[in-house]
Structures are given as structure tokens and as C-alpha cells.
Design a protein around this nucleic acid. Structure first.
Lengths: 333, 333
DNA sequence: TTGAAAGCGCTAACAG
DNA sequence: CTGTTAGCGCTTTCAA
């Protein structure tokens, strides 16, 4: 059987209370006793049981991360930012993917496992759409990342402005304008709406220039390279050159770029492509893109969540990161 | 304050024990009392606290899933298989990514949070490489998926044979043979070795045919489309046609296919490409590949884990799925 | 600075 | 079938 705090107390020749105090770094323990306890702990290979611990204290030193799906580079970077921040304070995290009705139902229980953590990070998810009543069924701190709600602390990038920057950049170029976006209508509940915002900003830029995005020039597809490639081929087949294409994320942009390469047309001259995200490989393929500081967003959200956990009661935080246009040769310099 | 079992007992006019029995579907409760309790529960919006519950019972109705990283389609499908199976028995899961020394250290504590679950699924991870002592620091059931160890139940696909099938298929075709693999030397601890196995099987097929894989025809890269594309371009530049290329996963194969399309060469004639996985889009691009039943693996592993949790003590399970060669036009019919 | 004791919310054994 | 009671492993008063 695993040793318990009792065994440690026995071996160290002190009471339960003292052991507990050592465990919790309570300063008022005689150094001598502290040593005794520490030795006993080491000798027994004792580790406190986190569930037992959380019962009276109501703290777990854990946060729960909710996210819609898992196969996207974006979440890798975000998680890195989160994890770095957590490591400073000896917090750990568990991940809960939210993608099905069933999951959602189980997360509607305020005593569901994930809500036992000290705080929740909702990534690319909007509580209003997810839960009936419109709020996360917990009283513990909740922070949103890559999503916005006026009821929760929200950390995000200004997607509208990002789209606007892309638009501003493209309208200076000759040629017709295309938009490749990601369909968010089905599964609205699991969507964050960022792609719609990028589109909105993009269209605004066009309108300001007296231009207009034609319906036939808009394509809504799934978030994967292959669909983008396919749509890219289709566009290039009948397009009147030059054309300018905004893809709402780099993965899609990469698909378009490949379609261009296949076609033998000149990227940056015949066809201009601009993406969104600035993922690691975007520089290598010379992709013009709108950079969002993914890791920083993760870091910032975590800091705020951690503050909330330690009773920061200041009014709602809202951090809106500025996106940055990175011009590379896919839009011809 | 959240209602506790006490409140329910009061309201229902029964004792704690009876409420607990209702909660645990204990058949020996008078139907009348059961109704009373159920009504009280509904009225109060009561939900049992899972931590408190697990303390005396030592059960959580949770499993922990450990995996190396998150941005790969493979894990999406695997998770789907797992989750479906769990839903039948009202189990839930949390995910713990393992990718840094720090994470590993925190998971070396037998009382770490993840080990409080009823069972552990280790995906693409080999405990022997991960932990000193060579075993997962828990006495609870542990099942490996997409990885093999003779100390744990292991569910995997026969990667060696998969590589072999790819080899057999390619040696029938005229032209030189190339291999695109994924470097596993750095970060060995977080690698499962599947790519090495695929390569081994592949080379065996060549050897049986009296052929030999030249060192200059082997490329080890990272697991992403872009690197494959780059290496594909490089190969095609100086290759003597026709060439036959085995990429150890479909994502890499897709990169090679794109390099072919760019070059204007004929896929399936000048250049033959074969992948591994048979991801959703592989059929659409006509990629010959070795199919592994990802979802079924997840499902099977979960069933076994669930059995173990309900005290299945039979000897170690080992399920080796047979890979299947899917011939499409990327290898010319 | 410490030990004793109550209690976190629940399960499970026991007697009736 | 039910209530009572003793824990599960820990934190946290409260006196001393």
C-alpha cells in the first residue's frame, strides 16, 4: 500500500498536523522537525494524494484546458505558451477536447471532473454557444483564449483588423480578389467565429476602396490543405490573371500556393496569396501572412487565469493582441 | 454552496446511506425511497463530487490518455475510437501530453494527478524509454496503443509488415527506390519507433529481392508536409526516372506528390509514391498507401483497458492489427 | 510551535 | 431494505 501522511508522521515522530504543515510550506515549523519530516518523506517515497488534499482545501494546483479539436499546429504553439507559464508556479494541466454533444452534456455538470481544477481555459470556444444558460457551469475562474465573450476574461488577436490588413495589402495589387475561408455554419457551437471576423475585416478594406468581393469568388471549405489545394486548382483554371487570394489561415494558403506551383504560374506575379497565422514554415515558403502571437496569447491567458485563481477580483480583463502584416514574396514583395 | 449528499438525505427524509445507494444503483432500495431521493436530487440540482467519491471507493470513472504531441490527424481518429468506446460505459477521459522533461518529471510521481484515473492509455509512447525503472509509476491498468512493450498490453499495427508490403509493391516497378522517413534519434524518449519499423520491413522486402536501399536515397525529416515537399523537389531534380518513393506516412507522401505535380512529371509513371496510414484525403489524391485501422486500434485498446479496470487478470494482451496495401494511381494502378 | 480533533463529501461494512 | 458508523487522506482550526 502507498504510504499516507500517517505513516510519515509515525516515522518522523511528529503529529499529522506537523507533516501537513511541512507539506504546505507553513513557516512555523521548527527546522529540526521539518528535517525529520522531510527525511521520513524521502525514506518512504511518500507523495500526497491530490484528491484527498483537494477535499478540505478545495485546491488542486491544476487547470483544465478545453479545446475543440486537436489536429492543428495552432494548438501546439498555444499549449507551449500555456505550459511554460504554468511551469513557473508548479501548476499542471489536463486537456479536455470538446467536440461532441455527448462531451458537452457531461461538461454541463458543475461537478464534472474538469471543473474540479482550480481554473479553466477555454480555447477557441464560446461558452454562450456551448452551454444552455450561456455560461460555464462553475464558479471557478474561466478565461477565454482565441475567443471573445463580454462575460469572461478574453485573450485574443484582433481578427477583424487582421483581415483588414490583408485586404489593405491586396487592394493595392492589380487583379481580381478571392477569399478562401472556413465554413463555420455547421457545428456553430464548436466554432469560435474567428474566420468570420477575418473575412469581415477583409471585406471592410475592400469596401473602403470601393471594391466588392464577388460571391463567386468566395469559397468556404474545411480546415485542411487538401481542400485548399483543390479549390486553388479550380480557381486558377478559369481565373483571369492576375488574381489575389486571401486564405484565412496559413494551412489553406499553403494549399493555394501549391496549386499555383502546379499550374506553372508565377507566385507573387500571376497569383498573389496571403495567409493568416505565420506558422513556422510560412517564412520558408515565402508566404505573405498576418502574424498572430500564438504563444504569447497562451502565456497571457495563463497569467491572468493564475491571477484569478489567487483571488484577483479586478474587473474583466480583455487583451486584444495586434496582428501584424508580414510581407513576403507570395504577394510579390 | 453546492448541495451535498447530506442535503439530499435531509430533503428526502432518508439517511446518507440510502442516498449513496441510490447514487450507486444499488438494487436494494425500496422503490418509494428511491423516488424520494431522485426527486430531492433533481430539486436541489445535486451532483456528487467525484473527488470525494473516489476517496473511499478508489474509482473515478475516468481514464487518462498520454500522448506525445497533438497536431496530427492520426490522434484525432484514434481519439474518436477511444471516445466512442468510453461513451458506452459512461467513462470519461482526460488527455495529458508528454513532450518535455518537465512533464515527465511530474509524471514520475505515482500520485500525480493523471494516475488517479482508473486506467491509463499510453499512445505512441514507450514506458521503458520514458521512466527510470522502465515502468509507469502506477499499479493501475496501463494499455499501450500504437506502441509495443512486452511488459504491457499492447495494441498496434504490424508496422514492419506494413513497410514490407510497401517494399514488395515497389520492387515490382522499374526504377530506383527512395525512402522518406522521420528522424527519431533526437527525442528518442518521446518516440515510439514505428517509423523505424516501417523502414525495416521495407528494406527487408528489397533485400529479399536482391535489392539494396542506397544511403543517398534515404532522407530523414520532420513529420510535416513542407519538409517532404522540399525533399521531394530535391530528389526529382537529379533523379534518373522513373523513381519509386516510399514515405513512411501519408502526410510526407502528400509532400512528395506535390513535388511531382510541381515538376510536371507524371505521377504513377515517372514517379511512383506510396504512403502509410490511409488518411481521409489519401483516396482523393489517389495515393497508394498502407492502411492501418486507426479507430479500431483506439477502440480495441479501450475495451481491453476497461476490462482490466473491471479486474480482468488474464495474461498480457497483445493485439497486432494487419496493415493492408491499398493500391491507387500514385503507383500506376 | 505543536498535537488533538473536527470535517471535506462520500462509500462501505455492519447490525438490525 | 435501512440507518449508523467508521473511515478514505488530507487541511485547518483551536488550545495548549
Amino acid at each position: 500500500m502507498k504510504p499516507s501522511i500517517k505513516d510519515v508522521a509515525h516515522l518522523a515522530g511528529v503529529s499529522l498536523g506537523t507533516v501537513s504543515r511541512v507539506l504546505n510550506n507553513n513557516p512555523k515549523v521548527k527546522p529540526e522537525n521539518q528535517q525529520k519530516v522531510l527525511r521520513a518523506i524521502a525514506q518512504l517515497g511518500y507523495h500526497p494524494n491530490p484528491f484527498a488534499r483537494s477535499l478540505p482545501s478545495n485546491k488542486t494546483h491544476m487547470i483544465s484546458i478545453f479545446l475543440p479539436l486537436m489536429s492543428s499546429e495552432f494548438y501546439g504553439y498555444l499549449f507551449e505558451g500555456i505550459d511554460n507559464e504554468l511551469s513557473n508556479v508548479w501548476y499542471d494541466s489536463s486537456i479536455y477536447p470538446v467536440f461532441s454533444k455527448r462531451r458537452l452534456i457531461s461538461y454541463s455538470n458543475p461537478n464534472a471532473f474538469p471543473y474540479q481544477s482550480d481554473g479553466m481555459l477555454f480555447v477557441s470556444l464560446i461558452p454562450e454557444r456551448l452551454f444552455e444558460g450561456g455560461h460555464v457551469p462553475t464558479n471557478k475562474p474561466v478565461v477565454l483564449v482565441d475567443a471573445f465573450s463580454d462575460k469572461y476574461d478574453s485573450i485574443y488577436v484582433d481578427n477583424v483588423n487582421g483581415g483588414y490588413l490583408a485586404g489593405k495589402h491586396l487592394i493595392e495589387k492589380p487583379g481580381e480578389i478571392y477569399l478562401i475561408s472556413i465554413g463555420e455554419e455547421r457545428n456553430v457551437e464548436f466554432a469560435s467565429g474567428v474566420f468570420g471576423k477575418r473575412r469581415r475585416g477583409f471585406e471592410r478594406a475592400l469596401e473602403e476602396a470601393g471594391m466588392h468581393l464577388m460571391n463567386s469568388h468566395v469559397f468556404e471549405i474545411g480546415e485542411n490543405f487538401w481542400e485548399a489545394l483543390t479549390v486553388g486548382r479550380k480557381i486558377l483554371q478559369k481565373a483571369i490573371l492576375p488574381v489575389n487570394i486571401f486564405a484565412v489561415c496559413d494551412t489553406l494558403a499553403m494549399g493555394i500556393v501549391e496549386a499555383v506551383k502546379e499550374s506553372g504560374l508565377k507566385l507573387g506575379i500571376d497569383v498573389r496569396v496571403i495567409g493568416f497565422d505565420d506558422l513556422k514554415w510560412s517564412e520558408k515558403i515565402g508566404l505573405t501572412t498576418v502574424r498572430q502571437p500564438i504563444m504569447e496569447m497562451g502565456k497571457k491567458a495563463t497569467t491572468i487565469l493564475l491571477d484569478r485563481i489567487s483571488r484577483d477580483t479586478s474587473p474583466r480583463h480583455e487583451v486584444c493582441f495586434k496582428p501584424k502584416l508580414i510581407v513576403r514574396k507570395s504577394t510579390g514583395r
